[in-house]
């Protein structure tokens, strides 16, 4: 499977800070995304999911490990070729307002990638930008000449998506693209991403903190906690029978729009420990209801418990 993967990440490590106050945001994460598939990456803030996304799209350099795109490790490319190769990996960010330059017109923002790479005249650029705006469901005649501040969050996010698609990327990294939006608008953007994925044959890495959002878009889901993967599997398996206690807590945390559902206690108690000083053994043990002595001593390896379903837990749900 990993042979034809468009994206493969091996043992990714990212450190922040200097000698004394070193914080490891990502500690040895490996996964692969086959072409035209979507991998959902789920975790709380501080889990290292956004950092992983930034390394995948080469916005940030990892401290260790490799990120292979279509079989090549991009970090080995010379600067000029890297700049060109990078256009195949685009990102959509969380904050719809901060991700657009407030002083530029919408049509120019969308046309900018073409302006950077040249090769087309201005008329053609504008035509293609207008087509792309149309493709993300906006009327170029109405919105093209506006500036981002005059638009709603959902509209800004559509423009971000349009801009990311202008260079015909193979991989789209979406970093919490709907977290800042109303539920009603969330659904619009999620549908849009699903449609565009089909239409342009995109491979996606979809980062979110909400499993329900990931479920609507992803084929497989990876769950991260404190810089490590705890579970990786097909989306259906993962929410029907989450094996890792942390995945189970994430499933429970999704608010269910049903007033008759009894209010359970909070799915997780306490706060995430500081990544500067992670717990020994299993990193989740301090908040885990099933933790035993061994969890503090030995770190559980990520093991395959069913075809394509990996878990890093000494006591996965099915064995309890």
């Amino acid at each position: 499977m990993s042979e034809q993967a468009l994206l493969s990440v091996e043992n990714l490590v990212v450190d922040y800070g200097r000698r004394h106050r070193r914080v490891q945001a990502v500690s040895g994460v490996s996964f692969a995304v086959p072409e035209r598939q979507t991998l959902g990456l789920v975790g709380e803030s501080g889990s290292g999911k956004s950092t992983t996304g930034r390394c995948v799209s080469f916005v940030q350099r990892p401290t260790g490990g490799t990120v292979r795109f279509a079989g090549t490790d991009l970090s080995t490319l010379p600067a000029r070729e890297l700049r060109r190769a990078r256009t195949k990996l685009q990102m959509v960010f969380q904050d719809p307002i901060s991700s657009l330059n407030p002083r530029r017109k919408v049509i120019d923002i969308v046309a900018e990638p073409l302006a950077i790479w040249g090769g087309v005249n201005r008329k053609e650029m504008m035509r293609r930008a207008a087509d792309m705006l149309e493709a993300v469901g906006m009327d170029p005649a109405v919105t093209g000449n506006r500036r981002p501040g005059e638009l709603s969050g959902g509209q800004c996010q559509r423009i971000s998506v349009a801009r990311a698609l202008m260079l015909e990327p193979a991989l789209l990294v979406c970093d919490e693209p709907v977290s800042a939006l109303d539920v009603s608008v969330q659904a619009q953007i999620l549908n849009l991403l699903t449609d565009l994925k089909e239409r342009y044959g995109l491979t996606m890495l979809f980062i979110a903190h909400d499993l329900a959002v990931v479920k609507a878009t992803s084929d497989r889901v990876a769950v991260m906690y404190l810089g490590k993967l705890c579970e990786l599997g097909p989306v259906e398996d993962l929410y029907l029978s989450p094996q890792h206690p942390y995945s189970a807590a994430l499933v429970d945390a999704v608010p269910v729009p049903d007033p008759r559902r009894p209010v359970a206690g909070p799915p997780l108690s306490g706060d995430m420990p500081s990544p500067a000083d992670p717990p020994s053994g299993c990193r989740f043990r301090t908040r885990c209801p099933f933790a035993q002595d061994i969890c503090a001593i030995e770190e559980p390896p990520l093991e395959e418990i069913a075809p394509g379903h990996l878990v890093a837990c000494h006591f996965p749900t099915s064995s309890r």
Partner: peptide, 22 residues
């Protein structure tokens, strides 16, 4: 550090272009 600058970098914009345009 706004994301539109990161986005410009991801699109392969040169430093000069980011300084002048963004």
């Amino acid at each position: 550090n706004r994301e539109f600058v990161v986005a410009a970098r991801a699109m392969g914009a040169s430093t000069r272009r980011i300084l002048l345009r963004e």
